[in-house]
Design a protein around this nucleic acid. Structure first.
Ligand SMILES: [Zn+2]
Ligand SMILES: [Zn+2]
Ligand SMILES: [Zn+2]
Ligand SMILES: [Zn+2]
Lengths: 130, 130
DNA sequence: ATAACAAACGTTATATTATAACACTATGAT
DNA sequence: ATCATAGTGTTATAATATAACGTTTGTTAT
């Protein structure tokens, strides 16, 4: 039987923190925030993060080595992710734009590569920082 | 006066290595490769990398923390980068597709953010690994 | 030419991000 | 029951990146 979508204790703790956060969180900042809950080692964080990413509950912002909760229910399990990132205040916003996503997904590389997944990161100044 | 496009000694050494490489290179692997040339410390590598990125001579593959030479003369100084990345053999190929780039560049986020730059990374299996 | 400035350099130390390895526990399937 | 899979806790270490400091080099202005 395929695993139920139930989260383990550590996974739930990590997800809660990321969901409550206003912006992207770094692994070690998550770690410091959960030491009161009995999680003491980076491994425990990274293992939870890996699974949460697999499940599509969170995403990694590659350019920042940081993690955000998935806000778009229709983001097909991290197969097509896009974010806008403010270079001033560090704000990150998940972009769910079906047209954009479809356009990029349908892009086919000349050299014969078939893509399974993409990640797009936009940089600029957010409304507040502009 | 704007700086000439001439590279310093260390910048040239680092760029040479990256250009000669078949695939993306990591900072410390570059370091190990240039120790015979008198470069001994990570700082020296990272400083050169930063400048080379600024100049648009190389790009950072964020999902791999690795660096590739820019192969497309018309890639507007790293304002719009796209790569295809093989999940099996680690090959990275810079995509220069004017239509794709234009489409993405013209994308405007609803929330009022104006973008200065984007980076897009595709993942899949290359022709050889497929 | 020389003073002034910016960019690059070399070096040591340290911070940050991520994984390896191992022993143990819980759960469910055959 | 035994087997497999997933999760846990822990210690140690690897890999990636930056801080801080003083020196040197190259350019520009006078
Ligand atoms: Zn999402
Ligand atoms: Zn902002
Ligand atoms: Zn390029
Ligand atoms: Zn391949």
């Amino acid at each position: 039987m395929a695993r139920a979508q139930t989260l383990s204790r550590n996974q739930q703790i990590v997800l809660d923190i990321i969901e409550k956060a206003k912006g992207p969180l770094k692994a070690y900042s998550i770690l410091f925030n959960v030491q009161k809950k009995g999680i003491n080692a980076p491994q425990q964080i990274y293992r939870a993060l890996d699974k949460l990413i697999e499940m599509g509950k969170i995403h990694k912002i590659e350019s920042k080595n940081a993690f955000v909760a998935c806000r778009s229910s229709d983001c097909e399990i991290s197969k097509a992710t896009a974010f806008s990132i403010c270079e001033s205040c560090e704000m990150v916003d998940e972009i769910s734009d079906a047209k954009l996503s479809k356009y990029i997904s349908s892009f086919n590389h000349k050299k014969g590569m078939k893509f399974k997944r993409f990640n797009l990161e936009f940089f600029g100044l957010c409304k507040k920082c502009k």
